[in-house]
Design a protein around this nucleic acid. Structure first.
Lengths: 146, 146
DNA sequence: TCTTCATCATTCAGATTGTGAACGATTTGG
DNA sequence: CCAAATCGTTCACAATCTGAATGATGAAGA
């Protein structure tokens, strides 16, 4: 029945590559005392308007209680500010501080460095194609695609 | 300067996509009572010669003790056989059984289905390009690339 | 042969990371 | 004004993986 080779499926490759890349990224992030999810949270705040913690949780696809601890950490680093929404005092609005933006930029630089390492084998063209294809995939999957 | 946008780095996209895809794959695998790592182990056995648990651990980039529990589970499902290497009785040689091959095939089919879902947006060409580029990336990263 | 040291599988305690069920504070809609 | 829903928080605990013992085996040398 037309046997499928598991290791050449997108599913398998994205899974394993994702794990490896996340590990390596995590190692570089250690210098800033951050985990990938912290950076993810920063990215959400940067790309969108000010968001409540629940909004963030939905976008990141994690439990709201996790956002609490991530935000705690980032707040104590001075990277985010927590303010009650005046129009709905249940909501905590998270916003990036200047330090937060700097931190995010540093993480983005780390990611770019890792990108360069990963792409060593590919030519300029292949790299751009890959980036575009993954972008399309991300969009189609309902992820922050840009 | 030249600010890098984190969310458009390969690093970030592979990380998030990897997580999402692994989650979805995991959900499909639940029908077989397996986790992605179990399938990874089956794939290692299928693609290589018979391997000791330590070999498998190195290939999967995982602690040897984890291989023990993965193999325990797969053995009790009848998917793998455990035999002492006659020429070195410290080593446990893991081999796929016929059931193991069937199980792996079923998982590969599940992965292929997920692939189809993921690729819905892309044309035939883009899909093939993506597959190839990820293959190159995997190879360059020292992963089972095919 | 003995003795010593390395290697492999296994067990187990614990670290890490995340979830889900309370709960209190607030808002919203009869 | 009251009942139900929503948001953030805490906390217990589930899931996953690692690293340090331990026991069995093998290898190398006196």
């Amino acid at each position: 029945m037309n046997a499928v080779k598991l290791t050449s499926t997108l599913t398998f490759r994205l899974g394993t590559l994702g794990a490896v890349v996340t590990d390596r990224f995590s190692a570089r992030l250690a210098a800033h005392d951050l985990k990938p999810k912290h950076v993810g949270l920063l990215a959400v705040l940067d790309s969108g308007a000010a968001a409540s913690q629940l909004d963030v949780a939905k976008i990141m696809n994690v439990a709201p209680s996790l956002v609490v601890s991530l935000a705690d950490r980032l707040e104590e680093l001075g990277a985010v500010r927590r303010e009650r929404d005046p129009s709905d005092r249940r909501r905590q609005i998270l916003t990036l501080t200047a330090e937060g933006r700097d931190l995010l930029a540093a993480c983005a630089r780390a990611a770019a460095e890792l990108d360069a390492e990963l792409l060593e084998g590919l030519d300029q063209d292949g790299a751009e194609t890959l980036r575009a294809a993954l972008g399309a995939l991300a969009r189609h999957t309902g992820l922050p695609a840009d």
